[in-house]
């Protein structure tokens, strides 16, 4: 906990004498940040300080949401976007993790893949959208593919890196006990790569979502991105922001899911000092 006792400005915070306010400071400030901003937005908009035409206001967004969820078409959009996200992200996981482990494990495979991985990774793969649309059309498949391409590289690169940075000492231990290559892989390489894979999974969520949104904004007939686009064409910023909010929620749920997964897989790690729940 040493870090939290010494904040970044170097000021010592005395432990033991923390009042209720101090110990809940993070929560209180956070709440204040949220509520304060929302109140400013709402009343600023009503008072004309914030342009309602451009930014709408919180209550209007909620109202738009309430109207929206009663329309059957909305649920078709939700289903389409979720399908694209889950399929693209899932496919990326299923392919990137084994391939990454393989490429990291066999040095020469990695050398052979390196130039392409580097190049494709530094490429905005979103730019492949036009070609993907040509190849598989305007349906769900094109969005699945874009989401997949986004997440795949986000996952495979840390995975390879994880295998390549396995602690030499642990490999020595396994070798000295005569562990087979298979056992070395299962008992040393795989567990020590888990933190890297989790990092990739977390990045992958964001990338897959970006793929889904862009794909739907660019070329689709159904999905939340299409809803956002229609709302923007009709200058309904409340409906538009409701759509954005849904993507944010999806992202938050995904990140939280990964955090739980991480917690489960990392029971063997000490709880980080100063980390907040």
């Amino acid at each position: 906990m040493s870090r939290s006792l010494n904040d970044a400005s170097g000021r010592r915070v005395r432990p033991g004498r923390l009042g209720w306010f101090d110990s809940h400071a993070r929560l209180l400030y956070g709440l204040f940040g949220i509520v304060g901003f929302l109140v400013f937005w709402e009343f600023g908009s009503r008072a004309g300080i914030v342009s309602e035409y451009f930014f709408s206001r919180p209550t209007a967004i909620i109202e738009a949401g309430i109207v929206e969820v009663q329309i059957p078409r909305f649920w078709v959009d939700v289903q389409a976007s979720l399908t694209e996200f889950i399929a693209g992200y899932g496919l990326a996981i299923v392919l990137a993790i084994p391939l990454g482990l393989l490429a990291g494990w066999y040095r020469r495979v990695q050398y052979a893949l390196d130039p392409w991985l580097n190049f494709l990774n530094s490429l905005p793969r979103i730019a492949l959208l036009p070609v993907i649309v040509i190849a598989v059309g305007l349906g769900l498949a094109s969005k699945i593919l874009v989401a997949f391409l986004g997440a795949f590289f986000a996952i495979i690169i840390p995975t390879i890196q994880g295998v390549r940075t396995v602690d030499r000492r642990y490999l020595d231990v396994a070798t000295s006990f005569g562990a087979s290559r298979r056992r070395v892989f299962l008992t040393v390489v795989a567990p020590s790569t888990v933190p890297f894979i989790v990092t990739g999974l977390r990045l992958g969520i964001a990338r897959a979502l970006i793929g889904v949104v862009t794909g739907e904004l660019y070329a689709a007939t159904v999905g939340l991105g299409v809803m956002i686009k229609f709302a923007s064409d009709a200058l309904q910023t409340d409906r538009l922001l409701f759509g954005v909010l849904l993507f944010t929620l999806t992202g938050l749920v995904g990140v939280e899911g990964i955090r739980r997964l991480e917690k489960y897989f990392q029971r063997w790690r000490p709880i980080k000092a100063g980390a907040n729940p």
């Binding site: 231990v173 000295s176 567990p191 790690r269």
Partner: peptide, 13 residues
């Protein structure tokens, strides 16, 4: 059998 420096126990087990 080797008794390693720094213990080198697998932290995940």
């Amino acid at each position: 059998a080797m008794v390693f420096q720094d213990a080198a126990l697998f932290p995940w087990y």
